[in-house]
Amino acid sequence: MAVTAKNISRNEFFLGHKACAGCGASLAVRIALKTLGERAVATLPAGCMSAVGFNFPQLAFANNAIISTFAGTASMMTGIAAGLRRRGEKDVAVVGFAGDGGTADIGIQALSGAIDRNDDILYICYDNEAYMNTGIQKSSLTPFGAATTTTPAGRNIRGNPGKKKNMFAIVAAHGIPYAATASVGYILDYARKVEKAARIRGTKYIHVLAPCPTGWGYDVADTVEIAREAVDCGLWPLQEFEAGEFRLNRKPGNIAGVKDYLKRQGRFRHLTDADMERIAKPEGDR
């Protein structure tokens, strides 16, 4: 049965943590664990969610959960899945929650290895578009133009000169059984993708956009709205890759909204009209 606001579990598996108010990533973790239930085993590398969730003796996960090395999310999940299989445990969801840096930078080798082996794991990348845990440094998923503490916006360089790595395409190119993009702005779409992924054997990858008020520079109440706008303006399309086929889940309804999306975030404040045009073009820099 598809997850809806009415039937989603009332159990909480991620609570009492120390995440910022308005944290998009903690919402992604919370909803995924509610969807997967108590048989989920969560693996989290160094990053915001492990930093706020695993401070002995304040441990915030109600299900089995473990921190991995920064580079080792996927490989540790492989080991957990193999070990549980050997113990005869069935109906288990081995799920990982790694940030954009933990996924697209330091963890991409282990992720590629796991997909190559088609290990039975669900890898969720919560993408807040920079190394937020260490204080907003650029990752390879930081979009073009965004100011971070290592790509400051000044007179000579206006924020990140590079573009956002296309992890969804990279993962799909492995021939993975299931991959999807999602946004915490469309939470039921995300929950349904988690639920669907849990039913598929082999490696699954969900890339969920998880805005960060602290790092992006917007009001803490606006996380869900910003996450919706990213989808609606076409910058973050909701897609699935399944059985070798790509599918767009939702037609962007407000293509003209790119500039508004950028303008309401402090990290893009310095962008010129020309910069924003460059981003807004159909095949623009992102």
Partner: peptide, 26 residues
């Protein structure tokens, strides 16, 4: 046994840690 063809030594031990955390000899 399950022989896992990891893609690096870092993953070899990371995977072994995961399996050991699941409670099996590794």
């Amino acid at each position: 046994a399950e022989f896992i063809h990891v893609e690096s030594e870092h993953s070899a031990l990371s995977c072994a840690i995961g399996a050991s955390a699941a409670g099996v000899r590794t």
